[in-house]
């Protein structure tokens, strides 16, 4: 049987064309629509990330329903502390304007642990101009109180020196 001498070239070209067509349609089918709009990635992923719901909603969102505590917090020495750091995330408490859960309130020994996260002088690298620190239990001894006392028995946690200074004023100490 006689075959033309360029048959292999034709076969190769046909195979290449078929491959190209398959590749073209496969790309259409499998590549996401927004891929390549800005670069080698899916451009829609940017908006998907931007639309992720926020879980921590900052202090002003807490003030709306808890004006008493916030009133002390926002005017006291603890005004830079986020409510959600001690109490938990807004999203665990409120959803679509409705209460869905109760955030825990720290008590007794838990409070002392929480306070000492920042105010423990045993950890160095806490400069005086940044934060006031204490040595425990020396501070309790110096104040002549029981060593089992937790911090909140003297300090109101939302405004730590407010009532202490107030009582000192009444006593004429300052």
């Amino acid at each position: 049987m006689h075959t033309p001498h360029n048959a292999h070239v034709k076969r190769l070209l046909a195979a290449l064309i078929i491959l190209f067509v398959i590749g073209f349609f496969a790309k259409q089918a499998f590549q996401p629509k927004s891929f390549g709009k800005y670069g080698h990635y899916r451009a829609d992923a940017i908006m998907e990330e931007a639309n992720r719901p926020m879980r921590l909603m900052t202090n002003p969102s807490c003030v709306k329903c808890h004006p008493y505590e916030a009133g002390h917090q926002m005017t006291g020495l603890h005004k830079t502390i986020s409510c959600e750091f001690c109490h938990g995330a807004y999203a665990d408490h409120i959803k679509d304007g409705k209460k869905i859960g109760t955030l825990p309130v720290k008590r007794n020994a838990e409070i002392t642990t929480l306070c000492l996260r920042c105010h423990n002088r045993a950890i160095e690298a806490r400069p005086k101009q940044v934060i006031k620190t204490v040595v425990m239990p020396d501070h309790l001894r110096a104040q002549k109180v029981d060593e089992k006392h937790s911090c909140n028995q003297c300090h109101y946690v939302h405004a730590p020196l407010k009532y202490i200074n107030h009582s000192k004023k009444i006593m004429g100490l300052i």
Binding site: E84, A125, R126, I131
Partner: peptide, 16 residues
């Protein structure tokens, strides 16, 4: 020079 190692950033990040 201002970081006191309280870890509130880590807590916030985990919660967010």
């Amino acid at each position: 020079t201002r970081c006191i190692g309280c870890g509130s950033c880590c807590v916030a990040d985990k919660r967010e």
